[in-house]
Nucleic acid binder design. Sequence first.
DNA 1: GCAATTAGAACCGGATCGGTTCCATTTCAA
DNA 2: TTGAAATGGAACCGATCCGGTTCTAATTGC
Lengths: 166, 166
Amino acid sequence: MIRLSRLADYGIVILTRLARERGRPMAASTLAADTAVAPAMTGKILKLLARAELLVSQRGAHGGYALARAPEAITVADIIEALDGPIALTSCADPASTDCGLEPLCPARANWRRINRAIREALAGITLAEMAAAVPDALAVAPEAERLASTGRRAAGSPLLLDGAR
Amino acid sequence: MIRLSRLADYGIVILTRLARERGRPMAASTLAADTAVAPAMTGKILKLLARAELLVSQRGAHGGYALARAPEAITVADIIEALDGPIALTSCADPASTDCGLEPLCPARANWRRINRAIREALAGITLAEMAAAVPDALAVAPEAERLASTGRRAAGSPLLLDGAR
DNA sequence: GCAATTAGAACCGGATCGGTTCCATTTCAA
DNA sequence: TTGAAATGGAACCGATCCGGTTCTAATTGC
Ligand code: FES
Ligand code: FES
């Protein structure tokens, strides 16, 4: 199973929340509460996203994070790349890496690049704006989300997402 | 980095080799020698592929494996699914699994399915035949491959593919 | 009956990854 | 000026996953 790391998973959720803010900054703590992602994790993710320049950060008291660009200009591929590193199915496809032992005789080699590009384009074709637009009303009812986040919060450390498959 | 498991990686290599046989069976040992994939690993992969009915197997002396269908009818998606389980970036997209804690308020949810489908289609769009056709002459020179496989074989257990990224 | 071969499971150690913790730095405001 | 509120950054830890091996059973041809 080709799976998305949780970092990226949560990252998308967090960014989606942030997208509704339209450039206004939010503190990490509030974001964590809103998205129900563990605070520590939220912090880590936000830092990574900031370093990747998808977010701008304001330090000090009353600081926070805001989208660095319009949600329309941020793609799912951007997010995944920021959090998980380059999107590539195999390193064989990376022209810089010569470490695949099969290389000299591998017939698949020439195709990896193609496959990788196909996937990358699939991911680059979806913007944060589209993600955020998906459930507009559900989220417009902010109180509900807040309630869940504060009262129904699961114990810190419990996994959000169990991988059922395989 | 979204990465392909080695199982799938090797699987494609092995199947590609097998594709050139046009339905004729090959023994696991010969396949291993030809592809330079560790014999034990080769066996494991072949068993999985057979169970997934991408290969037909013949047991007993002079047994072996052969493609169950024409290379044109086997896609990369088929192979990955056979070896790594269902192709899905997150379990959130799986309608049957309800284990993502963010579910009730997650705005991303509605889009996972879409993303997954895009990727799946990218992978389903490439057939084994196309993979095998990529380097037709390089492989036509079988002796070279054989030489590498028998003499230049790396020590068992040494990794074929080091992940440079991240 | 024996040798060759696949079927299947169990097993192991190392890498990866989700997650936490700690400390340094910046900034605002009382 | 001082302290509280934030982010920056790194180190750390334990559990899980995964690549890889090994062993035994079943099947088949000679
Ligand atoms: S699998 Fe790496 S070069 Fe073919
Ligand atoms: S990330 Fe799982 S439902 Fe949104």
